[in-house]
Computed example of a mutant assay.
Amino acid sequence: MAKAKLTFKDINLTVSAPVGVRVIEISEKVGSGIIYGCREGDCGTCLMEVEEGWNNLTEPSVVEHKVLRENNAGRHQRLACQAQVLGDATVRPV
């Protein structure tokens, strides 16, 4: 299985993550401060800033786009419950 480096800036930790895993799954395991309320992409609590590797995450779905707009998310913000790792990325909670 392919792996990528996922860095959580809030806890200064880089881990090897399987490609295709959602950021929230790794965040939970390592104790990052990315919080969540659902896992379905419709509440917006797991909003994160992608500092590096924006293109190394899956494209936002229609549902994620809607929630990002409703939450006035910035250009490099994503939902950790929706973004899947495709390559190296650096993220932090908003």
Rank of each mutant, 00 (worst) to 15 (best):
K3A: 06
A4C: 04
K5L: 08
K5I: 00
L6H: 05
L6A: 07
T7D: 05
F8T: 01
K9M: 11
K9Q: 14
K9F: 02
D10V: 07
D10T: 07
I11A: 06
N12D: 15
L13H: 11
T14E: 12
V15S: 02
S16Q: 14
P18S: 10
P18N: 14
V19N: 06
G20E: 13
V21N: 05
R22H: 13
R22K: 15
R22S: 11
I24S: 01
S27D: 10
K29W: 02
S32P: 01
S32V: 04
S32N: 09
I35W: 00
I35Y: 03
I35F: 03
G37D: 09
R39D: 07
E40R: 14
G41R: 14
G41Y: 04
D42N: 15
D42T: 14
D42F: 07
C43E: 10
C43F: 03
G44E: 10
G44F: 01
T45R: 14
T45Y: 12
T45C: 13
L47R: 15
E52Y: 11
E52M: 09
G53T: 03
W54Y: 13
W54A: 07
N55M: 04
N55T: 08
N55W: 04
N56Q: 10
L57H: 11
L57M: 10
L57F: 12
E59F: 09
P60Q: 12
V62F: 15
V63I: 15
V63Q: 15
V63K: 15
E64H: 07
E64C: 06
E64P: 02
E64F: 02
H65F: 03
K66W: 10
K66Y: 05
K66S: 14
V67S: 00
V67D: 01
E70G: 08
N72S: 12
A73H: 05
G74A: 05
R75I: 04
H76A: 06
Q77M: 11
Q77V: 02
Q77H: 08
R78Q: 12
R78S: 09
L79R: 05
L79S: 11
A80P: 06
A80V: 03
A80E: 10
C81L: 03
Q82N: 06
Q82M: 15
Q82H: 07
V85C: 08
L86F: 08
G87F: 00
A89P: 01
A89F: 02
T90S: 14
V91Q: 11
R92V: 12
P93D: 11
P93G: 01
V94T: 12
V94Q: 13
